[in-house]
Write a protein that binds this DNA or RNA. Sequence first.
DNA 1: ATGGTGGCCACGCCA
Length: 256
Amino acid sequence: MKVASWNVNSLNVRMPHLEQWLRAFAPDIVGLQETKLEDHKFPDSTLAALGYRSVFSGQKTYNGVAILSREAPRDVLVGVPGFEHEHRRAISATIGDLRVVNLYVVNGQDVGTDKYELKLAWLAAVRTWLEQEAREHPRLVVLGDFNIAPDERDVHDPAVWNETHILTSAAERAALRDLLALGLHDGYRLLHDEGGVFSWWDYRMAAFRRNLGLRIDLTLVSEALRGQVVAAGIDREPRTWERPSDHAPAWIELGA
DNA sequence: ATGGTGGCCACGCCA
């Protein structure tokens, strides 16, 4: 069972890449972020023809999340309970015996800005909500674009990406630790210790070619799933294709 | 220290 997370940066533009990648990688469950599509424009029939069910919550121009799955999704929840706003950044569903939460975490722009404060407030609301979600669903996967690099192995230049920088700041990393303290584990780090493996590269400065990236796309698993993570990685292939998303799919494989 | 690229949409906002 392969479970993946991919920030597609406009599904309208990236649909050919998504189709190609679904055929090649054959994931069972995928969380998408930055679909940037209103719900009436979501390509659910095209995805159904490829063998995937879709649930989605989108808006024009910004944000937008979806979960694709081979099996039918149940108990779909849109948004973060207790944090009402217009951004479409969260969608959850039960698929088989897994509860899947897909998050597009607020970027935060720069430390100290209003958007940064929004990010921290949003993450605090997510933590409060997931505490309940984890209690109700022992087999929980929380995946998405976290817009936080967990530690220095996850950034190409720790001197720049430090405790005062957006995506790596002390408060952001503390917020991520608070989520992990709910009994969640970074699936990739259960199996890999090395640094220099990234999921996002800026479009500018030939960052991908030079591997100037960050690992900010994560798949967290609950304690009950910890021993079932048999493989994990980031598929750099779609980032090499023409007109790519700036993110690559991050995935884990769950065994029996 | 600044600006580089990309998506959306039609000019600046967001990342």
